[in-house]
Nucleic acid binder design. Structure first.
Length: 489
RNA sequence: GGCCCGUUGGUCAAGCGGUUAAGACUCCGCCCUCUCACGGCGGCUUCGGGGGUUCGAUUCCCCCACGGGUCACCA
């Protein structure tokens, strides 16, 4: 029997206070990769807060809330704990220090006492002479005595990774195959900063190994650092995890989606009336195409069919039009009751009157709404009848003009007056028998009614539905007004 | 600029040497219809360029172009 390895993946945000769409997608893929297949694995949340200067108060709450809302539940993390904690990097300082010392002892890392000024000067010089800026290994030649003396004197220092002088490094990305680079193009990067915090470059390697992460899923911005991480794994003699570098989510062909561009974050999309499941579903499709073709998938359905090998290599442009479509699909698949609940806050934004049939209104809105924010604009005729142009009564297609409209409305008036139970089915029955009596097309009667009740060219629902939504009193009042106006001309 | 990655319709994409180059969104047309929608049916539009390899390239190799990433004591 085949031994199945239980996946362990992680989402490792740094708490900067903003969950953008690309980040969420990375979290989603990591979650899906863990949960895909027959034996669900573990999804870990780890906080990468090693940059004290960038720490934003409350940023973690945004991350927690977003993941919870979208259902990306983590099995191990800062708040829930787990066997390989702590899950906050600032609480793991001692661990990194210990491993850095091991590297120094092995000769795979070294202390560096260079100050910022020297480093800056060096870089400027290198740039000026057209060579790639790289640490010149000034401190690599320090003798053990010199190092001990500087350390004892309390001179600020950092620890650098010692990149091999010659040769190449190869690493494997699951969707890009092997990538090989020359060691001489790599910099002796900083592992431990002067404040004794590790850099991301060091902490991610140590943590991914210690936390047993099997597949590392992150953005392409780390692709060019990956060789240096492999060198670290090799120096420790650790098994290298699988890598998946996700292509960026773009705003257009050349720009990434970003906060700087003022592009929508997850929170912004929610505020704009998108459903969380629809957002998640849509962003999953940016760079991943499910086998089988069905694109509308719940989180658990996605988990069933997800494979990191189906993630694409090239960037994907975020298309708000398609997001609208996906959102509309989710809306339409709701039961009338669910839609009513969801739409109610948006309906109440635009409707103050309390005598309307809101359930019926929601039903009329249901197929006419892609995003919840579409709702208010469709309801601007309810509280007050717009001061409409009588020309609306004229429709070539419906074969109505002023005279026809006036006549129809006059026929309708007594009939509706006699409808006791003012509901759509009853009104429908009454008006259709009128139509039959008159022997005319539906539109002759119904078009003028709709215009009289709404004063609008387009409305959610036809005349009958509008009458039921408005109620008898208001309907009769609007009908009377229309007759009065039409009679005057 | 060096290094690395990418390039199938307007957008997301399937494809993994031989296909009429899937599908979805958008757009257009028709049907349904009391408006607008919904729904149904149909249609337009694609392999960045140039060389190879091969009987045969969207698929493999090379070069070019374009786009992106990265060159921090940020992640």
């Amino acid at each position: 029997m085949l031994q199945t390895v239980r996946e362990r993946t992680r989402f490792a945000p740094s708490p900067t206070g903003y969950m953008h769409v690309g980040n969420l997608r990375t979290a989603l893929y990591a979650y899906l990769a863990a949960k895909a297949g027959e034996t669900p694995g573990t999804f870990i949340l780890r906080v990468e807060d090693t940059d004290q200067e960038r720490f934003v108060e409350g940023a973690m709450d945004v991350i927690y809330a977003t993941l919870r809302e979208t259902g990306l539940v983590w099995d191990e993390g800062p708040d829930v704990g787990g066997p390989v904690g702590p899950y906050v990097q600032s609480e793991r300082r001692e661990i990194y220090k210990q491993y850095a010392e091991q590297l120094i002892a092995q000769g795979d890392a070294y202390y560096c006492f260079c100050d910022k000024e020297r480093l800056d000067e060096m870089k400027t010089l290198q740039r000026a002479s057209g060579i790639a800026p790289r640490y010149d290994r000034h401190c690599l030649s320090l003798t053990p005595e010199e190092i001990a003396a500087k350390l004892a004197a309390g001179i600020p220092h950092i620890v650098r990774q010692r990149i091999p002088d010659h040769g190449t490094v190869t690493f494997h990305d699951e969707i890009r195959e092997d990538i090989t680079v020359e060691c001489c193009t790599l910099d002796d990067q900083v592992l431990i900063k002067a404040d004794e915090m590790p850099t991301y470059n060091f902490a991610n390697v140590v943590d991914d190994h210690l936390m047993g992460v099997t597949t590392v899923i992150r953005g392409t911005e780390y692709l060019s650092s990956a060789p240096k991480y492999n060198l670290l794994y090799q120096a420790f003699g650790w098994e290298i995890p699988r890598y998946l570098h996700c292509p960026p989510v773009m705003k257009d062909a050349t720009q990434k989606l970003s906060k700087r561009n003022g592009d929508a974050s997850y929170q912004d999309l929610i505020a704009k009336g998108y459903l969380k499941d629809a957002i998640l579903n849509y962003i999953a499709l940016l760079g991943w195409s499910p086998r089988g073709g069905e694109e509308i998938l719940s989180l658990s359905e996605m988990a069933r069919v997800f494979s990191i090998y189906d993630v694409s290599k090239s960037p994907a442009v975020f298309d708000p039009i398609k997001l609208n479509f996906v959102n509309a699909e989710y809306l339409r698949r709701m039961t009338p009751a669910q839609f009513y609940e969801t739409a109610l806050p948006w309906i109440k934004q635009a409707v103050k009157g309390d005598h309307f049939n809101l359930r019926l209104l929601a039903e009329a809105l249901h197929p006419r709404c892609e995003v919840l924010s579409d709702i208010p604009g469709q309801l601007d005729f309810l509280d007050v009848l717009p001061d409409y142009d009588l020309a609306l009564f004229v429709s070539k297609k419906m074969k109505t003009d002023f005279a026809v409209a006036l006549n129809s409305l006059q026929e309708i008036q007594p009939i509706l007056e006699n409808v006791m139970e003012f509901t759509a089915p009853v009104i429908h029955e009454a008006l259709f028998s009128l139509i039959e009596t008159l022997g005319c097309k539906n539109g002759i009667v119904l078009w003028p009614l709709r215009v009289a009740l709404s004063g609008k060219q387009f409305t959610p629902g036809g005349g009958i539905e509008l009458a039921a939504i408005l109620g008898k009193t208001e309907s009769m009042r609007r009908l009377g007004m229309a007759i009065e106006r039409l009679s005057a001309c």
